[in-house]
Design a protein around this nucleic acid. Structure first.
Lengths: 145, 145
DNA sequence: TTCTAACTGCTATGCAATATAACAATCGAG
DNA sequence: CTCGATTGTTATATTGCATAGCAGTTAGAA
């Protein structure tokens, strides 16, 4: 039986992505964080004071879907908001959020090791370079709303 | 602003996968096929006589979700079923299904060119080898039900 | 300065992919 | 022959993501 997906890069990309996402979700479950929520902590940590719209733009999450997620992280005391002007509110990690971010980061790194551990550091970096160049190029642009 | 996803292979994998899936869905839309339906045509074409459970196992689609998809392809006259025994039914492409499969394949190849066109054939094959080795290894196995 | 277009945060809602649970009919290994 | 496993199926829940619209706010062009 011939493999009809032999030469199709997109197929293998998707299969691995699904497996990786499943593993990541399981890795973060003990922290009661979904992958997107963890990503939000990472982005806010790296860019203190960002607006939630901006976070959404970075992560490819629509404004409408950001609202309830931010509300959840607020409710859990992981992030704090400070009004910048009448619309924008600056997001920052709370102390609790900082330690949660660190724990999440550890989970993510363990996950990466689990899924991509058979690749050398060089291979991984090379892969990252290729993937990043493909998804961040403007030709295949995606609109976040 | 530092990129918190710099070294995370999984992140870039997912971002590209989402873009690729969006492009693929758009590419197949004119044929009124979803990506999974097109994949089913490919698998059935490559393995005439497979059962739908087997197709599901190959594609990572649960039995319960295969039923309505098979029904759709049957209704459209793209595939045919022949009872093998009291449970199993052998799936084959109809003539119409064959030509649809060919057209879908063309769409997929155009899509691949669009998304991965900036990579050389060698780079693509190398990527495929790496991705396939990662997702098909038993350590990170996934259960289809 | 005023007006308008654009932006922020938000709610409500819909859809499609996927997951769970259960069932009847059937098969096959022991 | 029997019992565990398998097939196809229905019904249903969950989840991620999309659309549409709104009120309040801002900023830039006229």
């Amino acid at each position: 039986m011939t493999d009809p997906f032999e030469g199709l890069l997109g197929y293998h990309l998707r299969r691995l992505s699904v497996i990786a996402m499943t593993d990541l979700a399981a890795a973060l479950a003990p922290l009661n964080l979904k992958p997107t929520e963890a990503s939000m902590l990472f982005v806010i940590d790296a860019n203190p004071g960002v607006s939630q719209s901006e976070v959404g733009r970075i992560l490819g999450v629509k404004r409408a879907n950001m609202a309830p997620m931010v509300a959840t992280l607020m409710r859990r005391g992981l992030i704090e908001r400070e009004p910048v002007d009448g619309r924008v509110q600056a997001l920052r990690l709370s102390g609790k959020g900082q330690s949660m971010r660190a724990r999440a980061r550890a989970c993510v790194e363990a996950h990466e090791e689990r899924v991509f551990g058979s690749l050398s550091k060089d291979e991984r970096n090379q892969m990252i370079a290729v993937l990043a160049s493909l998804w961040s190029k403007p030709e295949v642009e995606m609109e976040v709303e």
